[in-house]
Nucleic acid binder design. Structure first.
Lengths: 248, 248
DNA sequence: GGCACCCTATTTAGTCATACAATACGATCA
DNA sequence: TGATCGTATTGTATGACTAAATAGGGTGCC
C-alpha cells in the first residue's frame, strides 16, 4: 500500500495545471501572450477539455492568466500573480536560481518576522504559545536533522499564527514548501546548539509578553541564520545586490 | 456599450464561486465540515455541474477547501487559506468587522512597508522610481478625493514593486481591494497637505538611494496615517488589542 | 452471545464526450 | 471607410462512466 508520493499521481487536472503553470512561470509563454487554445492543450496532453478547463481555472484563480471568449487565455504580468501561493512557489522553485530565490525569501522574513514575533508577544493565547514551545522542544529532542528541520519550521510557523492576524498567515504557509532547503542547510551539526539558544530566547520573550524582546531576539536569530547561510554557501547571500542605476 | 460593472455579470462560475466562497468565509460551513455535494449545489443555484465544479476548483486553488471522492468537499482551516488573495480578501470584506479588518491590515503594513521602502532604495531602477513619482504627482495634481486616493494607492503599490522582490508583491495587490476605504477616510481635506509632504520624503529617499531615510520616512507616514484614522474613527484603531491571557 | 474483521454496496468526486451559446476578432463587401 | 457576416475560442449544459472512500452488513472467531 504505497501512499502516493504526494505529488505524483493525484488528479489529472492538477497535473495539467502543474505543467501549464510551470511553463508560464518559466516564461515559455511571455506576458500578454495567449497560451494554446483549450483544444490544442487537450491534444498536447491527451486529456479531455473538462480537465484542461479546470486546470486553467486553477491558474486563473492564482492570477497567472486571464481568459476571454474568442480572445484566448492570456498570461498576466507577474506583478499580479499570487507569488505566495504554495503552487506558484513550487513552480518557481523548479525554475529559478536557488540563491536568488532564498535571498529574496530572507528579505521578506527579515521584514516581517520580527514584527510578527512582537505582535505574537501581545496577542498570543495559551494554545499559541504551547504550539511555539512544542516546536522548540521538537528541535531540542530531534535526533536526526530531518526532525530538527521539521520542528524548526513548525516553530516559525507557529509564531506567525500566534499573531492572531490572518494576513500574516500566508507567509507562514510557504515555509515548508520554500524554506525546507535553507533550513536543512543551516541545521548542520555545530549550528544546532546556538540555534536552540536563540529559539529559546524568542519563545520566552513571546511567552512573557515581552514585545521588544521578542522583536530583538528574532532579529538576532535571523541575522545569524543569514550569516550561516552566507558562510556555508560561500558567497554573497542576503545582501541585496544593487542593480546598476543612475540618479534621476 | 456598457462596460459591465466589473463584478455583476461576468462568468457564471465566478458568481457561484463568490456565493460559496462568501458562505465559507462567513462560517456558514464550519472548518472540517463538508459543503453540499456538487449535485445539491447544482440544484440550489440552478446551474450545471460543470459550473459548480469549476467554481469549486477556484476555491480549492485558494486553499479554502479540499475535495475527495466520496468523502466530499471539506473546508480547510483558515490558517491554510490564501488570506492575501484578492477574492478571499473581498469575501472577508463583506463579512468582517471593518475596524478589526483595517487594524490587522495596518499591522501588516507597519511590519512590511518600511522594509519595502528600504529595499526599494537599494534595488529600484529608473522605471520603478518614475512610477513612484507618478503616484506622488498624481496625488499633488488631484482635484477630487477619488483621484487622490487612486494615486495614493498607486504610490504605495509602486514601492512594493520597486523592491524587485516578487514576494513583496502580493501585499501590494491587496491595496486597491482592501485599503481603498481606509485611504478614502484619510484623504479628507486638511490631511492632504501633510500627506503630500510625507509622501515626497519617501519618494526622495528612495530616489536617492537613502536606505535608512526611506525606512524612517515610511515609518513616519504610517504612524501618522494610523493616528489620523484613530482620531477620525473616534476609537482605538491600530493598537493591537491584547486578549486576556494568563502566563504559562 | 459478543466482538473483531473483512467484504460489498453506495455515495460522491473525477473524467470523458458532445452539443450549443455567446463573444470578439478579422475578412469581406458595399 | 464603414458595416456586416463568418469563424474561432471560451462559456455552459447534459449524460455517462470511472474511481475511491465510507458505511453497513455479514462472517468468522473468541
Amino acid at each position: 500500500m504505497f501512499r502516493t508520493p504526494d505529488a505524483l499521481i493525484r488528479n489529472v487536472h492538477s497535473q495539467v495545471a502543474d505543467r501549464v503553470g510551470i511553463s508560464i512561470v518559466r516564461g515559455d509563454v511571455g506576458v500578454g501572450e495567449t497560451l494554446p487554445s483549450e483544444m490544442q492543450i487537450c491534444e498536447m496532453m491527451d486529456v479531455s477539455r473538462t480537465v484542461v478547463r479546470e486546470a486553467i481555472r486553477t491558474l486563473t484563480g492564482k492570477g497567472l492568466v486571464e481568459a476571454r471568449p474568442k480572445s484566448g487565455t492570456r498570461v498576466r504580468p507577474p506583478e499580479q500573480w499570487n507569488q505566495l501561493d504554495p503552487d506558484v512557489l513550487r513552480w518557481r522553485l523548479e525554475t529559478s536560481e536557488m540563491d536568488t530565490y532564498l535571498n529574496k525569501l530572507f528579505q521578506l522574513r527579515c521584514a516581517v518576522e520580527p514584527a510578527a514575533a512582537a505582535l505574537a508577544a501581545t496577542a498570543a493565547g495559551q494554545a499559541d504559545i504551547a504550539r511555539i514551545r512544542a516546536g522548540y522542544e521538537g528541535m531540542a529532542a530531534a535526533k536526526v536533522n530531518e526532525a530538527f528541520v521539521a520542528a524548526d519550521i513548525a516553530f516559525h510557523q507557529a509564531i506567525y499564527f500566534a499573531t492572531r492576524n490572518e494576513f500574516f498567515w500566508p507567509i507562514a504557509q510557504m515555509f515548508d514548501i520554500a524554506l525546507r532547503q535553507s533550513f536543512t542547510i543551516a541545521a548542520r551539526g555545530s549550528h544546532r546548539a546556538r540555534a536552540l539558544v536563540e529559539h529559546h530566547a524568542v519563545l520566552e520573550a513571546i511567552a512573557t509578553g515581552n514585545v521588544e524582546g521578542a522583536r530583538e531576539a528574532t532579529n538576532v536569530l535571523l541575522k545569524n541564520s543569514v550569516d550561516d547561510l552566507t558562510r556555508i554557501r560561500g558567497r554573497e547571500f542576503a545582501a541585496p545586490k544593487a542593480p546598476p542605476r543612475g540618479r534621476s
